[in-house]
């Protein structure tokens, strides 16, 4: 059962993500800008949460801090019971652009990330093919990124992110560059990948309110400059969800509209 071995077996509390009075500034002296102002939030284990807000509200900064790419200046951040650290085995990060390595094939790109986790080599091949099947790209396993469309590349990046079987998955506007149809397809694949895991906590940064409502259990709305949490909205749509079907559900559109109102206040 190598796949199970990947997840740390400790289930001791605290789990989930806990951020307490986090503030962050950029620049120095007179040109200082407060990017995040006293952020406090709790995300339960296994929850799918979105951070929405206008561009420049600091949502990517917040995600960078959770990924350990940026050190918090004040306040505390806990993923599970430890502080974030770049390269933590239980954290996976996905970027706005696909960030696929162009000299590696789709399968090799997934393998590249997988090699940083302790997965027995013999099982990697199998896991890679399984993931490519899940994002419907198995016949493109040996294709290079330059040979794939933008949507396909982002699907490979999605598979790569989930290949890590991390407890914490941090996504930074992963579908921002895609057209509406491709976007919905990928959102469904993301939901399927996440629902296929048992206790993966997902934090999605997005400026697409429809996407946030369709995917999340809860949405945090951030204000602009400085980034402050101005609303915490639970999304009570039933699961499992199908993003395509949601498009014709009145409740979904009501939620998007009320989110719009919150943001434009």
């Amino acid at each position: 059962m190598p796949i199970d071995n990947l997840q740390s077996t400790t289930t001791d509390p605290p789990s989930g993500i806990h951020i307490n009075s986090l503030s962050h500034e950029f620049g120095r002296n007179e040109s200082r800008v407060l990017a995040l102002d006293n952020i406090t939030l709790d995300i339960a284990e296994g929850e799918f949460v979105s951070l929405v807000g206008a561009s420049g509200c600091g949502k990517t900064t917040l995600l960078d801090i959770m990924s350990g790419l940026l050190a918090p200046q004040s306040g505390t951040v806990l993923l599970g019971d430890t502080e974030p650290l770049a390269g933590r085995q239980d954290t996976a990060r996905m970027f706005a652009r696909d960030a696929l390595l162009p000299w590696l094939t789709a399968a090799q790109n997934i393998g590249f990330s997988l090699a940083t986790r302790n997965v027995i080599k013999e099982h990697r091949e199998e896991m890679i093919m399984q993931l490519l099947r899940e994002v419907q790209l198995e016949e493109f396993a040996d294709a290079y990124p330059a040979q794939l469309s933008q949507g396909m590349r982002q699907r490979v990046a999605l598979a790569r992110t989930f290949s890590l079987k991390s407890k914490f998955v941090l996504l930074d506007e992963p579908f921002g560059a895609l057209d509406a149809m491709t976007k919905i397809n990928l959102q469904d694949q993301l939901v399927a990948l996440w629902e296929g895991t048992s206790s993966t906590t997902v934090v999605l940064v997005t400026h697409d309110l429809g996407e946030a409502v369709a995917l999340s259990d809860r949405i945090f709305v951030l204000s602009s400059r400085p980034g402050k949490i101005i609303a915490n909205i639970p999304i009570s749509l039933p699961r499992p969800r199908n993003v395509k079907e949601l498009q014709s559900l009145p409740k979904y559109h009501e939620l998007v509209a009320s989110l719009w109102e919150k943001l434009s206040q």
Binding site: L69, A86, G87, R88, F95, R97, A99
Partner: peptide
Amino acid sequence: PDHLLLARSLGLSRSEIFLKIIIP
């Protein structure tokens, strides 16, 4: 720069980043 961020988020060491990202 995205590749460097990816490498850092995966926890690659400086020499691994050099060999596996910068040289290719």
